[in-house]
Amino acid sequence: MPKTEASKTDASKTDTSKSAAPGVMVPNLWNPRSRQERLEAPQTGRPVRFLTDDEFPPLHFSGPDGTPTGFVVELARAVCERLSITCTVQARRFDTLLDALAERQGDVVAAAIPLTPALRARFLATRPYFRWPARFAARSDRGLPAPSAEALAGRTVAVLGGSAHAAYLKAFFPKALAKDFTDLSAAQGALKRGETDYLFSDGLTLALWIGGTEAEGCCGFLGGDYLENRYFGEGIGFVARREDVALSRALDDALQRLWDEGKYTEIYLRFFPVSPF
């Protein structure tokens, strides 16, 4: 399986990725050995109703015409096309999505709800189609080395105090000098001003900042991604009711095929010009 361009420390051995465009890494979250005969979605006589939230770009948000869009939403639409089924997408408040699914107001949740044991005890979920990589960022003009336990010794690293990223830094980069911040924008500002050597945080949020106007091109990712489940979770997948086994398995199969056919990569590049991976 292909490797990411960036080298990884032993603490960051995770899913593999591939480079689909110069400097853009696309995560490969599928196991090629799990391929099977094509699974058909059950025919219910009505559209499969996807539920999402419209306030979390670039994963799911309201488009210019008010229609839900985003990486997760367009992936759901591609899955429906791949399965040759009719689907609808309805936006609801994020904290009501799982209850709406349980009350049969929809059939599948397509939103950034973390996959956890508690969620799996209540619902079925596909394998993750997106995960939350942790990344190091640094000023682009400093020429700092790629992060490793040795390279970070004695160097300052901004983290959110009490976060999973702070705990990971302490466990795997014990000689780094952690600088705790209470909010990410303050940590980003400190990195931009050169008041800290590195920033270690959620890759998605950092990617949006690095590619946005606020960073003013100051900074970029350094090193690889870190996806340790115990610290950063399993990621997100499509969520269905426990009795809808055939639908959940068909969604899983369709996701694998979208990856194989390059459709996943096509959608990913539309919404992640700076990849979190």
Rank of each mutant, 00 (worst) to 15 (best):
S7L: 08
V109P: 01
G211R: 03
T126I: 08
M25K: 12
N28E: 10
V48Y: 03
S201A: 14
P114G: 08
C80K: 07
T88L: 08
A186F: 07
A153P: 06
E228D: 15
L208F: 10
E228N: 10
K13V: 13
T44A: 15
Q105Y: 11
L51K: 03
P114S: 04
K3G: 12
A187Y: 02
D244S: 10
F221C: 10
G235A: 02
P47F: 05
V157K: 00
Y231V: 09
D197C: 01
R82T: 11
F130A: 06
P68E: 05
S84N: 15
F56E: 13
T88M: 01
D65I: 10
A91P: 13
F123Q: 00
S201K: 00
P27D: 05
S140C: 05
Y168K: 09
V245A: 06
P57Q: 02
G223P: 03
N229H: 15
T213K: 13
E266Q: 14
Y226N: 14
A167C: 03
L206N: 01
E228L: 14
V89E: 00
K263A: 12
T44L: 13
A78P: 00
Y198E: 04
A153L: 12
V274T: 04
P27I: 10
V157Q: 04
T196M: 10
P68N: 05
S17K: 12
A6W: 10
R92S: 10
A164D: 02
F272T: 06
A134K: 10
T116I: 01
T205M: 07
R241K: 09
R77H: 07
A138H: 11
F272R: 04
W259H: 12
R49V: 14
A246M: 06
A166F: 07
E150G: 08
P147R: 03
P32L: 07
A178R: 01
R131K: 11
A41K: 02
R135C: 06
F232G: 05
P58S: 08
T96V: 06
L75H: 03
L115I: 15
E266S: 11
P117D: 14
T88E: 10
A125R: 01
R230E: 13
V72K: 06
D180K: 15
R241L: 12
D65T: 15
S7Y: 12
F181E: 01
L191N: 00
V109Y: 01
R92M: 13
R142K: 15
Y268W: 13
S19P: 01
V108K: 01
A138N: 05
V72G: 09
M1V: 12
E216R: 14
A6L: 02
R92L: 12
E243Y: 00
P57H: 06
